[in-house]
Nucleic acid binder design. Structure first.
Lengths: 347, 347
DNA sequence: AACTCTTTGAAACCCTTGATCATGGTCAAG
DNA sequence: CTTGACCATGATCAAGGGTTTCAAAGAGTT
């Protein structure tokens, strides 16, 4: 029967109970070496007795080391975003940090003020996870407003290749690998069902995936068919891919992610095309469901969770350069061959 | 060239520029009526000029109305959790709140201290989204520690039916509906592949889904086969469901969620059983992929996003009883019949 | 001239960190 | 036995960016 919402213990309460001054308590809590062992014990006992926990808000406000960050992310229902976020949260929690999230609406154009208003305070450490237009805008806004306290996860677009605030999977290479794999199976060419990119904004180059695909085709002297653009949702992808699948001359489709591949699979089924007999479909990201579709999806595994972890570590390093600069620990993207890919049909 | 990280403007800076005291600025920012129009204008001009934004940390610390909450959630890769979280975030952001997340590890038993340590401060408004054991523990911990500042989303377990801090979808009824639907198609009985529950903890009753299923069978005087228990992952579900699918006498399976149903679908395919010809499979939750599997999944739609919204509104109401108590605005769960269900095979 | 109301300012407080300085006490060197 | 160095701790104060309570100044009314 905890009747009244008894006020939480503060550092002063602990000090009083332990018979010390409040900042001796602070010293103990923050692990200062300048505290005698028995004093420390007394303080710790008082902390335990009162159930004292430092107030993270006050701590941050007082200028202690940052212990919270905000993640700006696109649609969390995307496997890639969700998994990266999960990795960030996990790493952050392990380090005693807390993480806030704010979701960028893919349909909206967020102004700079919009973006900044999402942060709980100026200078809030922030990670942007986004591959689409709103994400690109957000990261530019933050780069302008607080370059030292931000990290972005996502595609790089040429110029920023070496930027110290960017963590990017180089999925262009695997896209090429997947394309070559399909060519080697005997396909004349490979079509590409593409996720939305931020091309409208940063027009230097195509998405890595699309570029790796096109490069591989060119290197093999194959025709590069026009990219079929899709939205992020499965239903959009379904509509976009229908005509492609209906075209009997199309024998292989590389999809921008597994949701798109699932739509292609469904469309193929409805068009009466056998996968992989008539049509090969390759996905991207290796979402959890990919191994359990029928037939099981050939796709590219991406180690998003460790990328998230890397992003967190990079952020810490940027906030406090005495911390080690993280070295990439995520696995390189890898083609996983399952059942949706095979040789083209014999004519 | 923003060379130096120019310090963000504070309320004092605004006050100085506008030639007023700092808490006149506070009044303007918080919309107090007791400010002369021209003073207000001057302050607003200063705010605009300096690009001032209130620091949410400081505001909360000073005891202003809460504007942030923490969501404790189980595995975010579960569609239900993810969608509820999305709903909360959306509603919160619309109200100017920020949301932190902390993920409960399904494999770990979190102590009370563990749970409390995740909150940035004592009394932090919190929403628990969890249907499994760690979630149940977390919600009990919080209920003990700060009953007024918490809301839970999830299954209710009997006693708490009317608890004012709980938002629960009554999915027992639809589970029954789905079961009756299968029986009416002519199935002898319906098997159940169940998601993990917190039965070990709150043993009063089974999960709603399982109970609704069993009730429906009993009411129809049908045998109630033993529940097949699965873990949360698709691969666990796959292993768990294999024997069930291999049993030719099984003609209909109601699955605890769509991931499980996907596993069942895959297992059926590998066992050479035609769905829905030989075997009907019904899922739960209507995850995005459900409409695009082959065959498309018959499942139960759940309006998680609006449940999340409701949770946020309930939390606000509990923090400030002058705010209206929200009335449920989410759609009731609804059976969506697609392609994985049909009459049983003729013997 | 007394009184009320509106507008504004002053000060205290929220909780914690950090910096500065002072105070005793211990210990080793002279 | 001094003297000086060093250590643990306390005492203060400022800062961080707000909110809230209370009081005062100014204006208008009767």
């Amino acid at each position: 029967m905890s009747a009244e919402p008894k006020k939480a213990a503060s550092i002063w309460d602990v000090a009083k109970l332990a018979g010390v001054s409040h900042q001796t308590v602070s010293r103990v809590v923050n692990g200062s070496p300048r505290v005698a062992a028995d004093t420390r014990d007394r303080v710790l006992a008082a902390i335990a007795e009162l159930g004292y926990r430092p107030n993270r808000l006050a701590r941050t406000l007082a200028g202690g080391a940052a212990q919270s960050l905000t993640v700006l992310t696109a649609d969390t229902s995307l496997y890639g975003s969700e998994a990266s976020l999960r990795g960030i949260e996990k790493a952050a929690r392990a380090a005693g940090w807390s993480v806030s999230i704010s979701v960028l609406d893919p349909a909206e154009t967020h102004s700079d003020a919009d973006i900044v208003a999402r942060l709980p305070r100026a200078g809030e450490p922030t990670i942007v996870i986004a591959h689409d237009e709103p994400g690109m805008r957000a990261r530019r806004t933050l780069l302008e407003a607080q370059p030292q306290a931000m990290v972005a996860v996502g595609e790089y677009t040429g110029k920023e290749f070496d930027e110290p605030w960017l963590i990017g999977l180089d999925d262009g290479q695997v896209a090429g690998e997947a394309t070559r794999y399909l060519l080697e199976l005997g396909h004349e060419t490979v079509h590409h069902l593409a996720i939305p990119t931020a091309l409208g904004i940063e027009a230097d180059r195509k998405s890595h995936r699309a570029e790796g695909w096109a490069d591989a085709l060119r290197q093999a002297d194959r025709p590069v068919p026009p990219v079929v653009h899709s939205g992020w949702t499965i239903s959009e992808a379904f509509e976009a891919v229908k005509p492609l699948v209906a075209d009997k001359s199309v024998s292989a489709i590389l999809c921008g992610n597994d949701d798109l591949a699932l739509a292609a699979l469904r469309a193929a089924h409805l068009s009466g095309r056998d996968v992989p007999g008539d049509l090969s479909i390759v996905g991207f990201d290796n979402a959890p469901f990919a191994a359990y579709t029928t037939p099981a999806l050939t796709t590219v595994n991406q180690d998003f969770e460790n990328v998230g972890k890397g992003a967190f570590e990079l952020l810490r390093h940027r906030l406090d350069s005495s911390l080690p600069k993280p070295t990439p620990t995520w696995r390189a993207p890898e083609l996983i061959i399952r059942e949706t890919s095979g040789p083209p049909p014999r004519r």
